[in-house]
Design a protein around this nucleic acid. Structure first.
Lengths: 257, 257
DNA sequence: ATGCATTTGTTCGTATGTATC
DNA sequence: AGATACATACGAACAAATGCA
């Protein structure tokens, strides 16, 4: 009795088909970063749609960070190299819309940075270790040269650790979350009254982390990294959220209730 | 001599201004999920731009997962509740374009799931503990009822743990990365010859994790969770990548080389 | 350095399919 | 069933920006 199994059809917009095809071409490597798409007029020919449709597709591709187009460019839209911008915007939007608290963001950084240090302690190459040392040296020099340079050197250190972890996903997420957190507290960090003391203490903590990474003691490096992060940011996190952060720090085994 | 400090100007597209304004309205709460935007015709009046420009803006908003529009809808575009879809697409695209290996994804899951368990062990409520127990019970029942149900129950367990961590960012990332990993290995998992034995072993591991969470022993729960994940997925990860995964498992302090 | 041709950004008008009342 | 309002899609046109001869 039962006839052939039909599947429900969903009407798919014309511009979506275009997006799919271009996306596929980029992900398959047929179109690589730096290359140009045909001009809008060519595209309307190739897809046999109107220019408006082509443009809507290009807007979507641009919103996803895959291409960029400028007026007057005799070549078509440019295929962009991957960048975590889209990821970052999604997370930033998540943070605002979903009401992510600073505490949750810092906690996430503690998790990521701790794990990155754990892995880096085991997997680092001598060259990566040298990068970390150089970054700390830059931090020392920056103490007298202002907070901006200090922050840049600090970034370089955490980046080097993230790279040494050997996990690109960790690396990118560290970068994304860091920039969101900084966006939330940068002004307060820069205005801190005892800024120089903060920087010096931060450097000392980073040196301890580096020593653990150098020794290959992953668990220690992870613990120190989490504590460093906590010390640096806890003051900006509402007191009510701090216990959740401390749950990531060393604890004398389990605390019975 | 130096005149007033002029700032570089960047020409900003008309549709971008529209996107900004609508985005701002949504993030500020002036527009909340379920509400409707004015119709495209109204919008072209309010922004005094053409229809095409309005539509390009709507395409971008739609691509970012903020609104949805259907033909024939007597109301305008619908404001959507936040969903991690955009985040997930960004990460999935990241995984393909950037060539993320299965090993890196599994490693990331080990990090997230381990941390979620660590936090859950300290912060869980009795209700959340009951959810975890119920999920494991569903896993037991599902052993004889097929892999799909088992997988769903497994998902429920990890979700309950992630919720109990109290960190929405961890929760969302766990969900996103899990679905990407499953997309890569689902077929191989389903076709495993000794599927039932795998399921039984997985249940045993989950029970151990749950016991640690119940006891409030965070570090133990984290270690067990990472090991559970490793045992379940390591077979699908190329042997060359496995040492990086094992770097996240317990190690007798540091292994001198 | 100046035009020129081309491309994108934007507008307007029109026709068509579709969902709601 | 019909009227209405909506989104989808097309095509022609003009302005602004770019690259190149």
């Amino acid at each position: 009795m039962s006839g052939p199994r039909f599947e429900p059809v969903r009407t798919v917009r014309a511009y979506e088909r275009i997006v799919e095809q271009v996306e596929e071409a980029i992900e398959s490597g047929a179109l690589s970063p730096g290359q140009r798409l045909p001009s809008e007029r060519d595209l309307m020919g190739q897809f046999s749609v109107s220019r408006s449709t082509v443009r809507e597709a290009l807007r979507v591709l641009q919103a996803r960070g895959l291409v960029r187009s400028r007026p007057g460019d005799p070549n078509g839209a440019e295929v962009l190299p991957f960048s975590p911008d889209a990821l970052q915007r999604s997370m930033a939007s998540l943070a605002r819309v979903e009401g992510l608290s600073l505490g949750e963001l810092v906690q996430f950084r503690m998790v990521l940075d701790g794990s990155a240090n754990l892995l880096a302690a085991r997997l680092r190459t001598p060259g990566q270790l040298a990068e970390m040392e150089a970054a700390i040296e830059r931090m020392r020099e920056a103490v007298t040269r202002g907070y901006d340079e200090f922050s840049a050197a600090d970034l370089a250190f955490h980046d080097a650790v993230a790279r040494a972890s050997g996990n690109k996903l960790i690396q990118i997420c560290v970068e994304v979350v860091r920039s969101i957190v900084l966006g939330l507290v940068a002004d307060r960090l820069a205005d801190a009254p005892d800024r120089e003391a903060l920087m010096r203490r931060s450097i000392r903590h980073h040196e301890e982390v580096l020593a653990a990474v150098r020794d290959g003691d992953g668990p220690l490096a992870a613990r120190l990294a989490r504590r460093t992060m906590y010390d640096y940011y806890a003051g900006y996190v509402p007191a009510a959220e701090r216990p959740a952060l401390r749950a990531l720090l060393d604890q004398p085994h389990s605390a019975p209730e």
